[in-house]
Nucleic acid binder design. Structure first.
Ligand SMILES: [Zn+2]
Length: 534
DNA sequence: AGCCTTTGACCAGCG
DNA sequence: TCGCTGGTCAAAGGC
């Protein structure tokens, strides 16, 4: 409810001093060379970082890797200095491919990982300029796979339509709409800086299947890039402005081989990556509940250990929709973290019907769309099986795709863009099947999922770790939005749908992407399997 | 009246 | 089994 006011405040707070996105998809660059560190350095700017494939691998390895990745990612963003960016490149290309206009992202930086992808190079994260909102990122075709395409800006099918009416929404919507235009650039953000090329593999999952998608957006302070230590990662969040988004998921969606490949090439799909990290500014903190285009009911609040701020639990008020989200918000009202769980099985509410303020993000919209298409939408609905999850079993990420962003509001010219929407969008990606699996299995983690899980678990671990280690540093927390969705099935190039049930990094094969086959990933392993067995 | 938020208690997973 | 922790429930109150 009071989101708007908050926005104002938040916006101020969150507004990036200078918006630059430097490393937009630095990760994508995939140069092995300085991979993480470099990225981070650049990323410090606040760019998005996407985790590279590396992270994927075996659980143990994954964890370690992932942690590193996370840490790195975390480290990356500082807000302060951002370099001017070049957004146009990738975005444009993407748009071109997509055939639709999409918000421009600095993708220029991103380059085909294939050659470049080095193990090291594959940073787990892709860095996106801070200026970009995760949501935008999500919208971008890059992340989404076409195969499953659902109406979305990404696909070109997406329509913002629902929103339109309310001014507030409009503004937000407009934000994206603009994006639709080729001309669209995240206005809020003046520029993006060149990406560092860090490691990075493209966060993208191979078209094949990605099961778990996670996107985490976190604002981060920077950290010495290479440090993997968790403490560094999270504590760094001090910068509000930056948020990084980690996501993996979208790519998996890609059904078309062509596209998938393109994405791969361009984006360096990493099948592996479960995370993509986006650093952006989070300017606003809308109430978690309202601005993503869905109505939410708060059903609990709790101070979570390791979190500076209390965590609020929200549930979608739509009948039969069990989507939940956790929002951590600073005293000032800034959203430091949002974690979405599940996918809405219903369209977004019309702006005028939204209880609070409706604002729709591209993501949220997407989500809604997706759900509709899927028909199931459900990931969540069926039952809240939050994944296996590491900790409490709730909110596990396994199947889910997570996007974390912390205050993602972006400022558009006029309006603010709220990340929350973006988050919702992520939900879109969840697959029904996964849900089923979940329902059935209780928690299912598939190969990717496993990664996702891992990523999340790791992420959490990291967070906890960070908190423990440097609780103080964390004083300022990064805004992050996590969207958890599940998508186990993906359409592969071969025209068949495949479910990934495991993934593993093989030592001889540093480059997972290369190894990926139809099944996708290099190795398969995993917790997912085990779970599946269950 | 209906919906939402608040908030303490309860539950479940994990070590 | 116990304690810790996160997630959820549900009564109470507010809008
Ligand atoms: Zn819903």
């Amino acid at each position: 409810m009071g989101g708007f006011d908050e926005h104002g405040g938040i916006m101020r707070d969150w507004m990036p001093p200078s918006s630059n996105s430097q490393s937009f998809f630095a990760g994508m660059l995939g140069d092995g060379a300085g991979s993480t560190v470099e990225k981070h350095d650049n990323s410090n700017d606040g760019g998005f970082t996407f985790p590279g494939p590396d992270r994927q691998v075996s659980e143990n390895d994954d964890e370690s890797q992932r942690d590193q990745a996370v840490d790195e990612g975390m480290k990356t963003g500082e807000f302060g200095e951002q370099k001017a960016g070049q957004r146009a490149g990738l975005v444009e290309r993407m748009a071109a491919r997509a055939g639709h206009n999409a918000p421009r992202l600095n993708t220029d930086i991103i380059k085909p990982a294939d050659g470049s992808q080095n193990q090291q190079a594959q940073s787990a994260y892709l860095t996106i300029s801070p200026n970009l909102s995760p949501g935008a990122f999500l919208d971008s075709p890059v992340f989404l796979s076409n195969s499953l395409v659902q109406p979305s800006p990404t696909t070109g099918k997406f329509q913002f339509a629902s929103n339109d009416n309310s001014n507030g929404d409009r503004n937000k919507d407009n934000f994206f709409e603009e994006s639709n235009n080729t001309s669209f650039a995240f206005k809020p953000f003046p520029d993006s800086a060149p990406l560092p090329r860090d490691h990075v593999n493209p966060p993208f999952m191979s078209a094949q299947s990605f099961q778990t998608n996670e996107a985490v957006a976190q604002s981060e302070k920077q950290v010495p890039p290479q440090k993997i230590e968790p403490s560094q990662t999270y504590p760094d969040f001090t910068e509000k402005n930056n948020f990084s988004l980690q996501m993996n998921p979208f790519q998996a969606l890609n059904g078309n081989s062509d596209r998938s490949q393109q994405h791969r090439e361009e984006h360096h799909h990493d099948d592996n990556d479960a995370y993509q990290r986006i650093n952006g500014d989070s300017t606003n903190a809308n109430s978690a509940s309202s601005e993503d285009g869905y109505n939410w009911r708060k059903y609990g609040q709790k101070q979570v250990k390791g979190s500076e701020y209390p965590r609020s639990y929200y549930k979608c008020t739509h009948a039969n929709c069990s989507v939940k989200k956790k929002v951590e918000r600073s005293h000032e009202g800034h959203i430091t973290e949002i974690i979405y769980k599940g996918a809405h099985n219903h369209p977004k509410l019309a702006p005028n019907r939204r209880s609070g303020i409706g604002s729709s993000n591209a993501l949220s919209d997407m989500q809604g769309d997706v759900n509709e298409q899927n028909g199931n939408g459900n990931g969540v609905d069926g039952g809240p099986v939050w994944g296996t999850n590491t900790r409490q079993g709730h909110w596990g990420q396994e199947n889910n795709f997570e996007v974390t962003s912390t205050g993602m509001a972006m400022q558009g010219q006029n309006g603010q863009y709220e990340s929350s929407d973006a988050v919702d969008g992520s939900c879109t990606f969840s697959n029904d099947e996964e849900e089923d699996d979940r329902a059935t299995h209780g928690s299912v983690s598939l190969g990717y999922d496993g990664e996702g899980d891992e990523s999340e678990s790791k992420r959490r671990k990291v967070e906890a770790y960070a908190a423990d280690v440097s609780g103080a540093t964390r004083a300022i927390r990064e805004p992050r939005v996590v969207v958890q969705t599940t998508s186990e099935v993906d359409i592969l190039d071969d025209g068949y749908r495949w479910r990934k049930y495991g993934q593993k990094v093989v030592k001889g094969n540093p480059n997972p992407s290369a190894s990926q086959t139809e099944q996708g990933r290099p190795g398969v392993t995993t917790s997912a399997q085990a779970q599946a067995a269950q």
